[in-house]
Design a protein around this nucleic acid. Sequence first.
DNA 1: GAGTGGTCTAGACCACGTT
DNA 2: ACGTGGTCTAGACCACTCA
Lengths: 267, 267
Amino acid sequence: MLKSPLPTRDDIDPVAPTPGAAAATPGARFAARPDIPLYYQIKEDVFLHLRSGQWPPGFELPPEHALCAHYGVSRGTLRRAIGDLVSEGFVERRRGRGTFVCQPKLESGVEGSYRRFRMIGPPLDPGARVLACERVAALPDIAGVLGLAPDAPIWQLERVRHTRGEPVAIQTSYLPAALCPDLDHQALQHRHLVDVLRDVYGVRLGRAVEYIDPGVADRHIVRHLGVTPTTPVFRIERSTYTIDNRLAEYRRASLRGDLYRYRIELR
Amino acid sequence: MLKSPLPTRDDIDPVAPTPGAAAATPGARFAARPDIPLYYQIKEDVFLHLRSGQWPPGFELPPEHALCAHYGVSRGTLRRAIGDLVSEGFVERRRGRGTFVCQPKLESGVEGSYRRFRMIGPPLDPGARVLACERVAALPDIAGVLGLAPDAPIWQLERVRHTRGEPVAIQTSYLPAALCPDLDHQALQHRHLVDVLRDVYGVRLGRAVEYIDPGVADRHIVRHLGVTPTTPVFRIERSTYTIDNRLAEYRRASLRGDLYRYRIELR
DNA sequence: GAGTGGTCTAGACCACGTT
DNA sequence: ACGTGGTCTAGACCACTCA
């Protein structure tokens, strides 16, 4: 797509002008393909320079006005292209300094680069077998987790989730009773908790934070999930918040590790 | 921040004009605070309408020109505000149709909404104890995984990683020998594999895909990590690709589950 | 002071979906 | 035909960084 080499820093550096290099793009025009957004073509072109190693990590990109001239586009279009590369984590803008190629984050430490994850496995059946659904006074520990006063009324829920009729997970949930004064056993057998909260109580859930540990099936899990005592499980701890950021549910769950796994794409 | 209610669909609907509602924002001006980008203030204001439930999931936002008029900004600024909400997953634009509030994805099934994850735990020491570093002919299975012909030369690496001098993970790696003809035992004891690949062989790593399962320490792990036979571990399977998308390393690892956990933020 | 990126405007034309 | 969002322009002024 690119008909001419991109400008180097030297091409536009007034301190050390290199006429030869500058002459490498004399009156160069960017050969844009129709029906493809310009910003996208530019982004791809710049990205190729990163992949090819011509613009290595730490490299300072030519300033925006130089790239505008090179590609023959307005600054808005150029900034959209570079902005997409920024949000994908490939380049970094520093106000007053310039735009730089990021260091690859992969494997640089324990802190994983983010990307996206998903749980891999067969879909859970809707509803659950409700082992317990009790309104109790919060013990100090759980009150602390939920951010409530000790003895505040809470709902304590224990459910077994199924996949194709087979039990695969046990979930213990704690919810402030103020959020949903009269939870119904029956409703939860066929509906997601999130749906009951929304439709019955007008509670909308927003973000959640989940911690995942490896574990081994204990007696409780063995009994309810019908697995052997050495089956590996995921121990999942989740805090779910309402859209106005109140803690709506604290949940601990065990999920069969022989049926489910996590998949994470790293950059 | 908002001095007047945002326009409703009715306010700008030519089919069903509601003069009363329209009069609710007569000559309304958006009270912008200085030193905060306009697009950011607008984004926050619109976001509040989502959180408050005034614009519920599925709701069609007023058209851009109406929002421009309401906030008294140009279309570029308005689009930047809405665009940020789009990339955060709160609203969705449909060309020719309009802009709509997204349905909350949380808990709607087994497929997790993505957000970001990180490994939680103390940082790994650089380098590793290299148990094995052998150049061998690929067995059919591993050749298949690496996308090589059977008997193609590969490097087979076994390393123990440490944290504060204590062994916490075992990693078995397979790499096409073509990528790095003469891997050095010594170099790997003090440097990250990724650094050796880059600095010695000019191989740059890009994306990676990781699968995570729960497991229990086996004899091999017990011996090298010094844990008891029932310690839960993460079984991590990772394929790492070069920036030009060739498979550079296939790795299986076991990581002490009593020291590390995953943290995932869901939307 | 010179150069960089950050923000913002007021237009324009287009592609798409609905009516 | 009309209204929607998608793209793009050619300016402008500002804040920040560095020499």
